[in-house]
């Protein structure tokens, strides 16, 4: 564990806490893409198949449980909670994410570390996570003004993978034979997708103005 990876995990956890706060405090999920939340639930379930077979550390197991439980809880809230579900932007959250799932799985069948069920699903989860934010970014562009908590949620979610890129660079330089090409390249693509969001987020922070993404 290095400082970059810890910062990445804490930033990821923070993004989830901010989203839970937004939904709990405002009893609303307006501006949140349910499709992105569902993709993340798939990402975590596909990635943590080793949850009960490979014990790495208490921290590792604890965080995996947190990520799986929180993503499923958020999807449940957005689908079934009597108050929260009413504020879902159904007509704006129309990204056909089936293609993202299909393409990621097809790529995982071709490019993986080892051709085992666990490794193929791990690669699948890496590719899917790289594009999972797309429905959310599309929704932000369509829904015009973005409330602060939603903006912070997306910002921390994008920032966590940037910390992981620093972590991979650090490990590549300090650990012999360390390579994570699949996660590394996907992580760069994932973080690059946030580029324009980060730009408008920085502008809104500098001008102390409302975050607005051009349609």
């Amino acid at each position: 564990m290095n400082i970059f990876r810890l910062a990445g995990d804490m930033t990821h956890l923070l993004s989830i806490l901010v989203l839970l706060l937004k939904i709990y405090a405002t009893k609303s999920c307006s501006g949140i893409s349910r499709k992105t939340q569902e993709l993340y639930a798939i990402v975590f379930m596909a990635r943590y198949l080793d949850l009960f077979t490979d014990f790495i550390s208490v921290y590792n197991t604890f965080m995996k449980l947190i990520f799986i439980a929180s993503s499923l809880a958020i999807v449940w809230c957005m689908r079934f909670h009597p108050v929260v579900r009413r504020s879902y932007d159904r007509e704006l959250d129309t990204f056909r994410y089936f293609f993202l799932v299909g393409a990621s799985f097809a790529l995982a069948l071709v490019w993986h570390d080892k051709f085992t069920l666990q490794e193929v699903f791990w690669a699948f989860s890496i590719y899917l996570e790289a594009v999972a934010i797309l429905p959310q970014l599309v929704l932000l562009q369509r829904s015009g003004n973005v409330d602060n908590l939603t903006g912070q949620y997306v910002f921390f979610l994008g920032a966590y993978r940037a910390f992981y890129i620093l972590n991979w660079i650090y490990r590549y330089m300090t650990e012999p034979r360390f390579t994570r090409w699949i996660a590394g390249i996907s992580g760069v693509v994932q973080t690059a997708l946030y580029a324009d969001f980060f730009y408008y987020y920085f502008i809104s922070w500098k001008n102390n103005s409302k975050l607005k993404l051009p349609a």
Binding site: H12, I56, N60, F67, D113, N167, R180
Partner: peptide
């Protein structure tokens, strides 16, 4: 080897 291909990250 396990560590090498092992997935120790989240």
């Amino acid at each position: 080897d396990e560590q090498e291909s092992g997935k120790d990250e989240l």
